[in-house]
Every structure is written in structure tokens, then in C-alpha cells.
Computed example of a mutant assay.
Amino acid sequence: MASNSNLTAARNARNDEFYTRLEDVEAELLPCAGDFRGRRVLCPCDGPESAFVRFCLGHWDRLGITHLTASQYNPMGPLFGFGRRWEWDGPDDRPEPVELDDEGSVLGVEARRLMDRADIVVTNPPFSILSSIIPRLEEWGGLFSVMGPLPQAKAVSIAPYFLSGRLWLGRRNGSMAFATPDATTPKESCDVMIDGVRHRRFGNIVWYTNLPSTLPREPFRPAAPAPEAPEFLDGAHILECGQVADVPADWDGPVAVPLTFLTRWTPADPGWRLVDMPGQPTVGGRALFARAVIERR
């Protein structure tokens, strides 16, 4: 009989499992085909049916990848089996699953071993552990593009990589719908039916990446007039702007902007740099949503 901890893990895994649509993967990653050429790809949260695996197999020649590995977590492991992996040397391969030596968590020993055999990681990981996954990918040192909620960019384990210029966001960010397993607890306010399949819609879903082809971006050029009654963050002479569009064109000091600024900025921006992502900014004692602090180069 399964232990309570195993059953709880399985239930939590189902409620944190959202299947990405192929069209969303193609929209973000096809323009990055040059980053895949000659490289080995790992999809560490995926089985053969996942959109990421189907993307790689369906565009194998265009991407120019040399090898594909997918691995899948077993939330009932290790008591009831382990995770599994599949490997392809070409798009026409039909690999049988091979059992891993652990349950297959993206944070586990086996996943790290598979990373060491890969050059690039692409996946939609469980959002609840994204703050642990990004440091794992950065420590590994390869290329990656993984999905997650924008608010997690301010996590203490993620923000330093933005500030150091090692991490930025991809091009296709915003509201996205994900297919959900039948066992997922329904949420009427977020669930929609698409082609007869229940999907859950999330706002502010972004691609956390270090793919070089996503760096070139239209430079950020603020155009707003200077505020008549400027507000500043408590304890600092940092101009508060409630919207990115409110950044004054002629302001030379640091500016606090919503995290959505990250969707239109990369470290390659010639005019602006990211200098801070304060934990809980306030203005006049009033708590604000998360902010990024930027200033001119």
C-alpha cells in the first residue's frame, strides 16, 4: 500500500502538471534554431508525447540537433517504480523507455547526469520548484529555455542571474493556456476548453533563457514626460513608475518599474541596465508589487 507521503506527492504533482501546447513551443523556439544546431538536447520533464519532444522530432533537420533525450518523473517512486528516459538519434527512432536510477525529478541525481550529457535544456518544469531549477541550470552551465511565471524572477535564487546578465526572458511572453490532466483539481476562474480539452490559462508566463539568439531586441526608449509630482521608493532616491510606459524620457537617475519591463529588455540593451530587484519596495509606507530598478548606462 502506498504511504501517505507518496500519495501526497502524486496528488501535488498532478496539480502542478500543465502540458504545453506545441504552437507555443514553436513560436518561441523555432526562431532560435541556430542555437540548437549541432547540439544534444535534453527535455528533463517530458515523455515522448510532450510538446517539447514533438517539437524537436518534428523540426529535427531544421534545428540540426544531434541527439535528443527526454526524462519523466514518477511521483510514486521509488516505492512504485522509478522515472523513465527515452533517447533519439534521429526523428524516425522509436525508442523504448529505460528506467532511471531514481524517481526522475528534474532536481535529482539522474537528471543532473543527463544534463552533463547534453548541451541545451528545453522544458516546462513544475512552476512550484522553478526557484530551484534556475540555479541548477546556471550551475550546470549549458544553454536553456524553460517556462515559468514572471513573478518568480524576483526570487532570491533567481534575481542575481538577471542582475549579472546571465539570464533574461525570451520573446513570447504573456498569457498562455496549458492542457491539464483529468486528475487536476478544477479551477473555474482559470479553466477553458480548447478543442474539447480542458486547459488552464495563466497570465504572465515567460521563457527564462540564456539562448544567444534571443538577446537582440528593440532597445528600450522611454518617451513619457517628467512627472509633475514624482514619487520615490522609501529610503532611496529611486523614481517610482507604476507602468513601464511612465518612465520619463529625460530621467537620468535610477527608476523602479514593474517586472514586466523584463519582457522587453535584455542585457544587450545599449541604453539601460538592470541594477536591483528589491524584495519588498514601498512608497510612503505603501507596499508595491515587485519592482526592477533600472538606470541609464
Rank of each mutant, 00 (worst) to 15 (best):
C43I: 12
R84H: 12
E49L: 06
R113G: 12
A155V: 03
P44S: 05
R62N: 02
C45I: 08
P160H: 11
E87P: 00
A51D: 05
S131Q: 09
E139H: 15
G58Y: 02
D101N: 08
P48G: 10
E87I: 03
V122L: 12
G64F: 00
V122N: 03
G104K: 04
L57F: 09
D89F: 11
G141M: 03
V109H: 13
I120M: 01
I134K: 11
F127I: 13
P44A: 03
D89N: 15
R113C: 03
I120T: 00
Y73F: 15
E87K: 02
I65L: 12
S128V: 06
P151G: 05
S157D: 15
G83Q: 06
G83N: 08
R113K: 10
P95C: 06
P151Y: 02
F52R: 04
L130I: 12
E138M: 15
G108S: 09
S164A: 11
L68W: 05
W86G: 07
A153Y: 02
V106M: 06
R54P: 02
K154T: 14
L79A: 15
D93T: 06
R113Y: 01
W88S: 13
F82M: 15
L143C: 07
V98F: 02
M115Y: 10
L42K: 14
E139I: 06
P149F: 00
P95R: 09
P125G: 06
R85I: 09
I134W: 09
S71E: 13
S164G: 05
G77Y: 04
E139D: 15
G104R: 04
I133S: 13
F127H: 14
